[in-house]
Design a protein around this nucleic acid. Structure first.
Lengths: 202, 202
DNA sequence: TGCTTTACTAAACAGTGTTCAGTAAGTTTG
DNA sequence: CAAACTTACTGAACACTGTTTAGTAAAGCA
């Protein structure tokens, strides 16, 4: 049936239209201003129409999260390229933190906000996150003989935890407690990470 | 003037009443259900009354954050007590993570939510957070000769970042990507932290 | 007692996510 | 081609949210 094919195509195009409008607003105006009503206005449809394509806001945000993870993975692939495994791991951690601080709203969606996780099975987050997560696992796997952790899973936990911790403290303003200005802060983070990588190296 | 003294006392009591109702709701029902209207209903006043005592929701949440930080500091003081500096640091990191996972909503307020930071000068967060933060700084200061960081500030950044990262990934459901059940996850976190502390030890 | 200040609230405004009845156009069928 | 059916869409409403304002009743002071 040619018509139902076209209908299906149009449905996918509409979903895509909604998602990209939402993604744009997310990046430009942040999470708080990305409302169903604002998205609807931007694409010149009524708010109710969005509910014909997405069950609720959480499901919509879940789809934007998928796009965000693709975006992050592309950044990893571009910046963690060294042949030497240990150097590649260093680059990956640096790229992660740079990405998070440069794209705080997308980072929120991927790693902080509750909304995209709500309407989700356990497997769904795995689907979205996995390509990026696997990048970390593989990089640590390649470096495993050069780091002082007996188990790569432990190393992954520590490195991800550390990276996420620094990004999220930073983008949620909690580094204020150090009473440093942003420049000092960034310098301290960088030198601390440098030493950390040195310390965990065999 | 006895009357204006009493008035002042009553004003403080009212603020206290609002805060404790809000704190209760925060712990019992979580952040999302703690609305100005719900707090007002609980204390049997109109929503507008709350605005006679707090400028806006952010200022109210800032005050609850102060209480939460007292709560956290009490937990630290209770659990990080070893005489040996390195052991005390280990206890502190463990206590931090335990506290965060056991009190996810208060942890949110202290370290994740944007709301309490909005109506805030840089110094204000310092006021709220400082007693707890100083506990970390002091503990690291005492252990500084036994850890492989040249600068205690670097060590603080790494340890806080790591602790916060693990707590926040955990309470925001992002550990799902490991495909472990909660028991396995907790075991991995614990063993990873164990090894981490070993590795940074001189 | 009369005047003023204080404490409080009902009602409204502007925003949110979401649902549902109704319409108008597109598609299929007799 | 016209009638019947299906699909796509929307206006308006519901139940929430934070916040402001005008008005009221009680408390304090002269």
């Amino acid at each position: 049936m040619g018509i139902s094919d076209r209908k299906e195509r149009e449905k996918q195009e509409m979903r895509k239209l909604i998602i990209s409008a939402a993604m744009d607003m997310f990046i430009k105006d942040g999470y708080e201003k990305t409302s169903i009503r604002n998205i609807a206005e931007k694409i010149e449809y009524s708010p109710a129409t969005i509910y014909l394509y997405y069950k609720d806001k959480d499901e919509l945000f879940y789809e934007i999260q998928r796009e965000a993870f693709d975006h992050l993975h592309a950044y990893f692939a571009l910046h963690a390229t060294a042949a030497d495994p240990m150097e590649r791991l260093r680059q990956l951690l640096k790229a992660y933190i740079e990405y998070g601080i440069a794209n705080p709203d997308l980072y929120d969606l991927m790693f902080i906000l509750r909304s995209p996780m709500k309407a989700m099975q356990d497997e769904d987050f795995w689907d979205n996150c996995n390509v990026s997560f696997q990048f970390l696992i593989d990089t640590i796997g390649a470096a495993k003989d050069y780091i002082r952790f007996s188990d790569p899973a432990q190393a992954a936990m520590i490195i991800w935890g550390l990276g996420h911790g620094i990004i999220s403290l930073s983008i949620r303003g909690r580094m204020k407690v150090t009473r440093m200005d942003e420049g000092e802060q960034a310098a301290l983070v960088q030198s601390a990470l440098q030493e950390f990588m040195q310390i965990i190296q065999k």
